[in-house]
Simulated assay, not measured.
Amino acid sequence: MGIIDAFSNFLERLGGKTIEVAEKPLTRLPEGKSVSERLKILKELQKEIETEQEETRREKELETVIEWRKQEISEPFSERLAGAMLRYFRRPVEGLTKSLKGLDEDLYRASILMPKDRYVALMLAVSIFSGIFLVLVAYLLYQPIEISLLVGFLGFIGGFFYMRYYPKMVWKRRVAEVERALPYALRHMAALLSAGVGISEALLSVAKADYGVISEEFDLVVRDMKTGASFEDALSRFDEKLGSENVSRVVKQILRAVKFGGDLSDILYKLAEDFSFEYRMKLVEYVQKVNGVAFIYMFLTIVMPTMFIVGILAGSVMAQALIIPIETLALVMLMAFPAISLIIINMIKKAEPR
């Protein structure tokens, strides 16, 4: 009786699910009809089933398209732009990719997770947009078409070289951030080591902490060790990737202490103090340099443009006509002096202690 009751309960649940899933009541063939009428009803039923199947297929296609568009929109604009360039200009991109040596290593050091060919496609896209933008700017400033095209060509070349050296700039910026946070990370590791924690656990703790780029790099070191690399190989890759003298000192001291023994926590404390002292000395020198450059910056960005305008006006009054076309004057004031200002700011920024 128990088996029969279980089987009947199963049939009841199955019938309930069938009723829930069914969207329309099943059309039954009427009794007592002729064969032609029954065939006609069957054809109508077949058309309804085909219509429902077509609607279901269209809904699935629409869902697929919507999902694809969501994934496409979620991608960064640079990825989509590179993909479009690679799709329409694959041969030029592949030829240029082969001629650019060392780009893959620069991308690796900068932690730019983009294939080399896609990055080259992005380089071309940025160069083209830079050229077109400068052509439009020169044309709106009423420059001759030859000058506008020349400015656009220079913009294309400038955009291309900027994108080529952009990974190196990112790498140097990451190295600077690592060196800036290195004393804090070393103190963190030294405190854990003095408390009896292992070196691997100390690296993992720094990787989970919020020290910026150095936490990201330590996380990669931990991942390398989890994937089978030895401790020495993982740290050597970290040192090779960054190419920093301070990082190299730290890696050598850690490997020497692990290999030959020694109080690693005390070593890391001393390294942290040395780096902090060096940074303070560099900061003092930087402040002195900035004080000397400030006067030059004010002269080139404030006094010199004023003297230039006064000289143009005085010369124009004496000649009773503008000695420089208004378009050229606008180009100088809108581009030349701001460019000088940006160059000086970039020099000051590069002299900032790392």
Rank of each mutant, 00 (worst) to 15 (best):
F299E: 06
T301R: 08
P305G: 06
I309R: 08
V293S: 14
A314V: 11
P305C: 03
I312S: 01
G311L: 08
A294M: 09
V290T: 10
K289R: 10
A319G: 04
V310W: 04
A314W: 05
F299G: 12
V303D: 08
A319Y: 02
K289I: 03
I309T: 11
F299T: 07
Y297D: 03
V310G: 01
M304H: 00
I312T: 00
G315D: 01
T306Q: 12
F295P: 10
I296H: 12
A314M: 14
F299V: 07
L313H: 09
A314G: 11
G315V: 03
L300R: 09
M304W: 00
K289T: 03
S316A: 00
I296W: 06
G292I: 01
M304I: 00
A319P: 01
V290F: 11
F299Q: 11
A314I: 15
I302P: 01
Y297R: 13
F295I: 11
V303C: 06
G311P: 07
F295W: 07
K289A: 08
V303F: 07
I302F: 02
Q320D: 12
F295C: 08
M298H: 02
M304C: 01
P305R: 05
A294I: 07
P305V: 02
M307K: 04
L313R: 05
A314N: 13
T301V: 05
A314Y: 13
Q320Y: 12
I296A: 14
V293T: 15
V310L: 05
V310Q: 01
F308S: 06
L313Y: 14
V317D: 14
V290K: 12
V293R: 10
P305T: 04
F308P: 13
T301L: 08
Q320A: 08
L313P: 04
A294V: 12
V293M: 11
S316T: 01
M307L: 15
I312W: 03
G315N: 01
K289N: 04
F295L: 10
P305I: 01
F295E: 14
I296T: 08
N291A: 15
T306N: 04
V303H: 06
A314S: 15
G315R: 00
N291R: 15
V303P: 10
V310H: 00
F308K: 07
A294W: 14
V290H: 03
I296Y: 10
M318W: 09
S316K: 00
M304A: 02
V310C: 02
M318V: 07
V303T: 14
P305Y: 04
F299H: 03
M298W: 00
N291M: 13
N291Q: 12
